[in-house]
Design a protein around this nucleic acid. Structure first.
Lengths: 129, 129
DNA sequence: CTCTGCAGTTACGATTTGGTACCTACTTGA
DNA sequence: TCAAGTAGGTACCAAATCGTAACTGCAGAG
């Protein structure tokens, strides 16, 4: 996958190189649950593992761990480990993570609009039938 | 996956219902190539199948077909079939598809910024070493 | 007369993915 | 003494995904 910002048909580096800026960011967000986790971290603030897992509802511990590690590796979230007993691990968005706020907000707007439109369309459909 | 727009912890419908507006839209964009296809359709205007395939570079005909059908089903793109010989099939964004413009743009901005930052960081790293 | 391109579809097969179950080590509470 | 909760790690297995190759029917080019 390669997305150019230029309007002039980027020659598409077949080597799979990260020549395109969107590439990286999309791979990050595309994973299952990923956007949802970021969204929750943003909406409810820093959270501990168990809290987050309960909130996401349906995700397995394995998935959550993997996603969190990936996000951490990308510098989108921060992992604070307190070696108490029992251990406390708190996850929070980094400044970089917060740079997605606007995108998520825009996406949310569109999503809400579409949902409303679809609901209206269904109602009309029912009336017609 | 369920994302609430409310700040008040949506009770998370376990039935997998589409109670959350982000849900639907994310599933749509999350598929591989999907965003890239939409991006290309936006950047280069309506395109025929072969054109698009050449532009995306790396995608298989099967994938492209499948993605296009999904996007069509979601009402994001329009499929114009001309039964000439050889047949011409042109794909274009619908008004609904264009509603993603802003999101894609925002995403692009972030992507470019991160890429620049990372490049700068790598340069500093090299200097330090 | 065969080759190519159009816009796909289909079958097959390998890889990846994601879930389930079970394990850690330690403390608190019953 | 036994169970539960903390934050995971590991192994295994079924299912979904994605690529490859081969097929469609027809026309124009060589």
């Amino acid at each position: 996958m390669t997305i150019s910002t230029e309007e002039t048909a980027a020659p598409a580096p077949q080597e799979g190189g990260a020549a395109c800026p969107m590439d990286y960011i999309l791979r990050m967000l595309m994973g299952p649950w990923t956007t949802y986790i970021v969204y929750n971290l943003r909406a409810f603030g820093p959270q501990r593992f168990g809290e987050l897992k309960r909130r996401v509802a349906g995700i397995s511990a394995k998935m959550l761990t993997e996603r969190l590690r990936t996000l951490e590796g990308a510098g989108l979230i921060k992992r604070d480990y307190e070696a108490t007993i029992p251990p406390k691990v708190t996850y929070s968005l980094t400044p970089r993570g917060h740079e997605l706020d606007e995108v998520l907000e825009k996406l949310g707007e569109v999503a809400v609009r579409w949902q409303a439109e679809d609901r209206a369309a269904r109602k009309t459909e029912l009336k017609a039938a």
